[in-house]
Amino acid sequence: MTKKSKASNHALTALFSVFSLVYIAPIAIIVYNSFKKKAYITRTPFDFPNEKTFAGLENYVEGITKTNFWDALATSFFVTAASVIVILLCTSMAAWYISRTKSRTSRIFYYLCVFSMVVPFQMVMFTLSKTADYLHLGNPLGLVFVYLGFGAGLAVFMFSGFMKSVPIEIEEAAMIDGCNPIQTFFLVVLPILRPTLISVGILETMWIWNDYLLPYLILDLNKWMTIPIAVQYLKGGYGSIDWGAMMAMLVLAIIPIIIFYISCQKHIIKGVAAGAVKG
């Protein structure tokens, strides 16, 4: 490497370090504001807490009690984990079936799945919430089934796209060796699908964890809230916001995401890139 390019590389590193700092700044601002007294948050949002403005954990205590945060966290965890597992299992099975059988039902179902990805949620939100109401699905478990129906489109589409590049011979060999289709799927197909399972799993996790309107319309809000609903709940009926509790809740809402990101960051970035190429 020449001296000149070395110098320019250092310059780039320095430049992007500055960009990164600016990029993280909004989150840093939220974090230190969450330790400030309520009155100082909106008045001087860019000042660090000092002796006069420091509030300790006051905002956190208030935010957690006001929104029942731990319940919301548990609901969000359950709904996201259960939905993603159910979606991955059911749709990968369905996608394998429809890409290995050439029947009219398979073809129609595949095109309906692709079609469903274009439809905006507002188109079905009213009728969907009434349907869920009618079937008494206003609870976290019911929500899992709704997500299966609603997340099926993207998942079936992505699995089917991947399935085309998987040689059918391996599966046929397994069948000849005496596997029934269920054994073939779980012992042969599913392991091959691993990268796509991760991609789809990550995309669906990001969607369901952060989804606001669907659970808001379907859940019985007197009993259950997810984290986005709990955050929005802090905005009172007349638009007034308790900024102290809000800051604490925003920090608490971000922490699980950061943990998730740091622990499987490589998979997330790969999954997004792979998922997009198939789209």
């Binding site: 059911c90 369905a94 079936y97 398979s106 079905v124 009728t127 129906g149 099926a152």
Partner: peptide
């Protein structure tokens, strides 16, 4: 086994509401 769970959920929660 393979398609019915997904298809049922898809029909009830997407197709019919649509």
């Amino acid at each position: 086994v393979f398609v019915l769970p997904t298809m049922t959920a898809f029909i009830i929660f997407f197709l019919i509401p649509f």
